[in-house]
Design a protein around this nucleic acid. Sequence first.
DNA 1: ATTCCGATTGCCT
DNA 2: GGCAATCGGAATG
Length: 230
Amino acid sequence: MEKGSAKSREQNASQVEYSLIEAILKRSPLPESFFLKDALTVARQLVGKGLIVGTGKQSIVTEIVEVEAYLGVADPASHSHRGLSSRNWPMFEAGGTCYIYLSYGIHYCMNVSTGEKGVGEAVLFRAARPISGIEQIVERRKSAKNVYEWLNGPGKLTAGLGVGPSKNGQTFFETGFRLVDLSGLVPPVEVVTTARIGITKAAEKPWRFLARHSPYVSRAIPARKLPTQV
DNA sequence: ATTCCGATTGCCT
DNA sequence: GGCAATCGGAATG
């Protein structure tokens, strides 16, 4: 194989990548009305959307591949289950508000509130596919062995994107984070549901939404266990 | 005042 | 697969 042609292909590929990122960055942020719906609807619709953190050359572009919905008083697994508190108040703000909390004393988890103000629902961002800003992600996720482990968990996602508690309670507009539609720019995803991860209450509810077959999710869907043959 | 436990992760055996 | 790390909210005394 000739060096020149390989290099040319590589250059071409990186140009395609560059124009894709350009196109994504040009997309308008999802309007507030997108979040003024119940968490289950918003969660399902967020899978496959673009999540952009930072601006200009510093921006990190990702595609959301996994989220979970947390409802209000009717959901025992939700932080808002027992009503308003000093910790969960962003969940009760108008849809589009960031709720970032410390998990296990170590990791930050990022949510976006949904519904009208006063409704304690939110969607947890659990995993994303990195599209740009690779250098920054690698720097923050040194323990990750490969690209699939960069953002494949709620704590890993905030770590990789550099999201901390300072944005807690701000609207997405205020944070500078952006959620955008990716239709026409990346292949459409097939959304499937499973039970939520790591909870003990209401554990049977299928309120985890993820892109089917994506290698970037936190946990693949377990293969269907076949009945034992006798 | 004390204890328990969690919307997790990474390292150890 | 087990388990420690480490903080804050909630339950318990």
